[in-house]
Design a protein around this nucleic acid. Sequence first.
DNA 1: GGTCAAGTCCAAAGCGCTTTGGACATGGTG
DNA 2: CACCATGTCCAAAGCGCTTTGGACTTGACC
Lengths: 343, 343
Amino acid sequence: MNLKTLAQELGLSPTTVSRALNGYPEVSEATRIRVMKAAEAANYRPNTQAKRLATGRAMAIGHIIPISTRHEIVNPVFADFIAGAGEVYARRGYDMVITIVPDDQEARAYAELRSKGNVDGVLVHAPKVEDHRIAMLDHLGLPFVLHGRVSGIESSYSWVDVNNVRAFTRATNFLLDLGHRRIALINGIGNMDFARRRRRGYEQALTARGIAPDPALITEGEMTEAQGHDAAREMLQLSNPPTAFLTASLLSAMGARRGIEEAGLKMGRDISIVTHDDELGYLKNGTAEEPIFTATRSSVREAGRRCAALLIDQIESGDRTPRHELMEAVLVLGQSTGPAPTA
Amino acid sequence: MNLKTLAQELGLSPTTVSRALNGYPEVSEATRIRVMKAAEAANYRPNTQAKRLATGRAMAIGHIIPISTRHEIVNPVFADFIAGAGEVYARRGYDMVITIVPDDQEARAYAELRSKGNVDGVLVHAPKVEDHRIAMLDHLGLPFVLHGRVSGIESSYSWVDVNNVRAFTRATNFLLDLGHRRIALINGIGNMDFARRRRRGYEQALTARGIAPDPALITEGEMTEAQGHDAAREMLQLSNPPTAFLTASLLSAMGARRGIEEAGLKMGRDISIVTHDDELGYLKNGTAEEPIFTATRSSVREAGRRCAALLIDQIESGDRTPRHELMEAVLVLGQSTGPAPTA
DNA sequence: GGTCAAGTCCAAAGCGCTTTGGACATGGTG
DNA sequence: CACCATGTCCAAAGCGCTTTGGACTTGACC
């Protein structure tokens, strides 16, 4: 069933039928209703490709996911972010087009998306400390929104981010207030911008209290359970071990807890943990009423929603002035923190 | 830059340029090279929408992800599966179109995808015990491949699946051989077909050794850390507790381990665990040389690759005869299993 | 030398839609 | 009554590509 035959059946021109269905005013209400009903009855839906070609709008948003050929990690946050963004796309009539690409071909993938015209804009993930993608996308003229920021360049493009500095400053201060002085940071990969910011928040809080950050208490890594475990285990063997851990993800925190318990210590009594919690669907921090870990919490799914909404707004309005959204993490109290043990 | 102007610049007709670029034989090798070079230089790439409209092929595969409005879980396996499928799509020139949809509108979403023509086929996820999607897709005439199977109807459509029955039979036999008699199953959600199959494998193995499955030792749930923990904790408090657990995912296994340790027991010595391991990128079972958990292992990413390849093969060949691929899980030995403690 | 197949190219139609630029009727206004 | 704004519809062009159905040249073959 296509527009032409539908129009024939109705004894109307394709023009009128198209206008009736798309809500243009140049058609009488009576015929509009007649057309709508016939379209419904015939289960007619305009062909996407034809519509796209005619309008010049792809009605699709791209996500490019680089896959490292070396360490094959798929970002665990990805699924939830996608789910959030996808809700918005569906509601607003956009397709979500995901491209998996070897990480050395990422730039090329953006250029192709642009020149082939399959998308109206892209959502950009996981910014690194020095991220060349911004300049590249500006150059391509492809509308985009960044999930996160790149330190140093924050005003020339649109982004949605969590206030990571503030979240980790608060978390650190919270531990300091409980009397902890040896606080360790089990961070994400060092060249990720969000990890850099969290570290900054952590160090600022320490410094403000006159405590010099100890490099022996800072590690970076892939935010897996194993990473959390190994890092905690090693640090607890130091001659001057930490009494508290700050971890970058629930998985790391779970690993750290295991390391703590292996050392014969009890989390929340002997050693405290504050973790960041992205509120992933499959990785809950206990229940809403009873969190296991004290955590800086911010929904990555909500971030996905906001990114998508922002991008579509920009595309549809044609307004290219950058917009920013800074989400604040809440600090929720769980069972993983307590006063520093008195030596 | 479009075909027309490129043709003009070359002093050729659009026909010839199109043919040259698409590898048709009706063009001399000399002009083909000339065209290729000019296209390269002009950074020309044919407009996707136009190509799609002209050829009638969407060059895209759809994935529909239903999101339950009640429990907001995003399948943790999803990201890795997508990554695998996406590799294949990219290699073969297909887009991956993902639609997030409230679960009560899933059928509608498939119908729309079909009538709007945005995809050439779909990959169907997470089959339930009685899954109406197969009949629906057959009726729609939309090519599809199912990741998993639906017990009872296995020959009328294409699927790629792990031999779950066999995997769990082997795991159970392995524990039985170690002397375990009270073996618990911490399974996935009961109406998922894969969970049903795993249970079947488990029960078959027990029965074959003359052990009647004990309903008190079987639970079903969402495969989270908390589920594993709570289930293990409860079962260990039974008057006749299990000496071994079979879990459906690494997260459940991690939770079970926590429950075991909380009970003052040691995994691998007092209580054994065998888990299924989907080899998710962000959830490793220790290292390849030293797995933590004894596990039935099967890469969901590889399953994604195979599903994608199978679907594209079917679409491009036009051959609609169903094809099946059954993947065998390997049983890897970790540190979580040992002989049953002698009472 | 005439015929025919093969090689090389092109004009034009068509994919299914949107959109421009009228055409025609109607009714209100001076 | 002439004029014009308004409402309602349509024909046709166009989006950028593919593909059908030739046209023309060349060289082999009888």
